[in-house]
Amino acid sequence: MSELVIETSDLRKVYRSGLRRHAALDGLDLAVPRGGVHGFLGPNGAGKTTALRLLLGLARPTGGEMRLLDVEVPDRLPEVLGRVGAVVEAPHFVPTLSGRKNLALLARTVGAPRGAVESALDQVGLERRDRTSYAAYSGGMRQRLAIASALLKDPDLLILDEPTNGLDPAGIRSIRDLVRNLGDAGVTVLLSSHILAEVQQVCHSVSIVGRGRLLASGPVQDLLGDTVSRTRLTVSDPRAAQHFLETAGHAVTRQGADLVVQGHGDPAQLTRLLADRGLYVSELTEVRPTLESFFLGLTGRRDEPGTAEAAS
């Protein structure tokens, strides 16, 4: 059994409009390990949704190779689709039917086993609202039902494209907890999202793409490292402390009454340096690298990554 659930090599997708050509994917090499939650990140137009559509047979690649659960796709896609659940395009539910009845219709369509509806409702936490009509569901509940529909086949791999898009903070948290629980239960989840703080909380590993190519991939902790990137200090005389630290070769900026220091090793050294000058630190906070800062540094984008993709 392969340790990779998704593998692409030199994957390409070119869209043509008249004489114009747009490469949504330009040689994407992607490797998603088995187990846990894997984040799939990229700025607006990076090609994330395009890649997911190609993997699921919703579009044809221009070139390259793809494997899902160690099966070559799209040529052998029917062999593996029964083991893959996905929410890439919004499923169509009947508004007047309850969540349970909507799932029951889908279960018959996909040939899901007996008990699949009950299991899916339980997994997404809708077992107490299963008889409520879909029209009365909140945005978060609709997303949960969409994920439940993808779980009917008891998949080995679950692909989710922006599952928290348009949700309020409570809805985002509920989907985050659901995704984490699914990963802990043994389902490999590929999570495409632009909310980097959420991804950092739930994902074991990530792949970051830009301009249709892979920029970085690996366990989140390995990418970010354990080093402290900055230290925030509250000190008795910030002006004097800033002058002394800058003289000592540190990069220092003011944040209100606090100082933020870069370019140092052990943060404790800062307190000793200042104490030797009679400047005493009352509070010290280590600011470690975040997935957002790593992402922005890697992609060179200062705007927040978008929620939709052009031509993807």
Rank of each mutant, 00 (worst) to 15 (best):
T188K: 02
G212W: 08
E127K: 09
L224Y: 06
G125Y: 14
E7L: 08
F295Q: 00
T164E: 04
S192M: 00
S293H: 15
A240H: 05
K101Q: 12
I208L: 13
A197F: 01
L152Q: 09
L103C: 01
V187E: 00
D177P: 01
A46P: 01
T8P: 02
R211A: 14
A112I: 13
T285F: 11
S119P: 04
S17L: 12
G249H: 02
T164L: 07
H194R: 08
I208T: 02
T109E: 11
L223H: 12
L121F: 11
P43E: 00
K48D: 09
R301C: 08
D70M: 06
D258M: 05
R272I: 06
R108N: 04
Y280F: 15
E89A: 09
L4W: 15
L259G: 07
R67V: 05
T8L: 13
L121H: 10
S138A: 14
L158D: 02
Q262F: 01
I6H: 07
P74N: 11
L11V: 07
P95C: 07
D122L: 15
A104F: 01
L190P: 00
R16C: 02
T227H: 13
R67M: 06
I195K: 01
A120V: 11
S17H: 15
R239W: 04
S205E: 05
E72C: 01
R67I: 09
E65W: 08
L77F: 11
T109C: 06
V199M: 01
R131Y: 07
Y134H: 12
L160D: 04
R131M: 07
G140S: 09
S9E: 14
L291A: 06
D168T: 04
L103E: 03
L233M: 04
A257R: 10
T227W: 11
S312N: 00
A268T: 13
V37Q: 09
T231Q: 01
R142C: 10
L56S: 07
E304W: 10
Y280H: 14
L105E: 03
Q269H: 14
L58I: 08
L178D: 00
V87M: 04
G64V: 08
T62F: 04
R211E: 12
A107R: 02
S98L: 06
G27I: 05
M66L: 09
N44L: 08
L152T: 06
A197V: 04
R20F: 14
D130Q: 15
L121Q: 07
R128D: 14
Y280D: 12
A170M: 05
E304Q: 10
L233S: 05
L224N: 05
G166K: 13
I6C: 04
N165M: 07
R76A: 15
A135H: 13
V179L: 00
V260Y: 14
